[in-house]
């Protein structure tokens, strides 16, 4: 194929049935969000690189393309994730608003593949909830995530809940940065976690236990009067509430769940469907990001990639 006609690697295109299906799924999600008083937010394509730095998420920085603005605007970054943009919008443009619900839908571009098929572009759809009581807002977003999963055309959706406070409490006294722990937990390797425990000077098995943690471990942790106990109680309570509210989606707890980007600091979650090889939905609490943007207020949200949803629908249909 001559170069002019060759597609750029990692950039998907849709036509006909696929395009219709994408628009249909987007429409269903927009209806779901709007029915719950979420207001649409259409952010700019470019952002300040400082916003990515404020998120203190090394993996998000790794995925963000930065270039020099030919119009003299200095360094600018192409959006790789909507959540920091929504956070910046609320912090900068809605300074007197105590509570806000926003949703968005649009493309993001990553510097490196974000899916095993080499795709770098995502069609990110999501909803963010700012302000309000934390427990209530978490519940609202978790229920929204469960309802979103339920509208997909796949079998046996599962919503998995974790809490970053568990890992943070366990490694707080260690000498190893949190990002390295997160990397090992994302691979669920007890062998590597044991090695890191030694390097961090933490008691043997203290973090490895999290990898094998079940509901009994969580119940025991919940009985403690410290940060670990608080995180465990919050996780168990939210899991029970969302399971009761949306029974058609299976809810599980996974104390070792670690999100893609590390700007989260409380409840985190991922959605799956049987037969599809990767997560269909992500989300969690990110109060620390709002704090870093100079607007300390609670924040929690969810996002998904419509291209993955298209692939999952095709997989389920086959």
């Amino acid at each position: 194929m001559i170069r002019e006609l060759a597609p750029v690697p990692g950039m998907p295109e849709a036509f006909g049935e696929d395009a219709l299906r994408l628009r249909w799924m987007e429409g269903r999600l927009r209806t779901l969000f709007a029915a719950r008083d979420f207001v649409e937010f259409i952010p700019a394509l470019l952002q300040r690189p400082e916003l990515v730095n404020a998120a203190r998420a090394p993996r998000l920085a790794h995925h963000t393309i930065v270039f020099s603005d030919p119009e003299g605007g200095g360094p600018v970054a192409i959006r790789a994730d909507f959540t920091p943009l929504a956070a910046r919008f609320v912090a900068a443009r809605l300074p007197n608003t105590q509570e806000a619900r926003v949703f968005y839908s649009g493309p993001t571009l990553a510097a490196h593949p974000v899916a095993p098929d080499g795709r770098r572009e995502q069609w990110q759809v999501g909803a963010e909830r700012f302000g309000g009581a934390r427990a209530k807002a978490d519940r609202e977003i978790l229920e929204l995530a469960a309802h979103a999963l339920a509208i997909g055309e796949w079998n046996e959706p599962v919503l998995v809940l974790g809490h970053l406070g568990l890992l943070r409490a366990l490694v707080a006294q260690g000498r190893v940065p949190f990002a390295r722990w997160a990397e090992v937990l994302q691979r669920r390797s007890p062998a590597d976690a044991a090695e890191l425990e030694r390097e961090a000077g933490l008691p043997r098995g203290s973090v490895v236990a999290l990898l094998a943690a079940d509901e009994a471990w969580l119940a025991k942790a919940a009985a403690r009067e410290d940060a670990l106990g608080e995180a465990a109680r919050e996780l168990l309570a939210r899991a029970e509430e969302v399971a009761r509210a949306v029974p058609k989606v299976q809810v599980r707890v996974d104390p070792a769940l670690v999100p893609r980007f590390l700007y989260h600091d409380g409840i985190v979650f991922e959605g799956f469907a049987r037969g599809f090889g990767r997560a269909l939905l992500h989300g969690g609490r990110y109060d620390a990001l709002m704090q870093a943007l100079g607007r300390p207020m609670p924040a929690v949200g969810l996002s998904l990639d419509l291209w993955d949803w298209l692939a999952a629908s095709a997989e389920a249909a086959s």
């Binding site: 046996e156 599962v158 062998a191 991922e270 799956f272 049987r274 037969g275 090889g277 990767r278 997560a279």
Partner: peptide, 13 residues
Amino acid sequence: SRLIVNPAAWRTK
């Protein structure tokens, strides 16, 4: 050698 598992299958099977 390590046993490796698909994360989504781990959550659904």
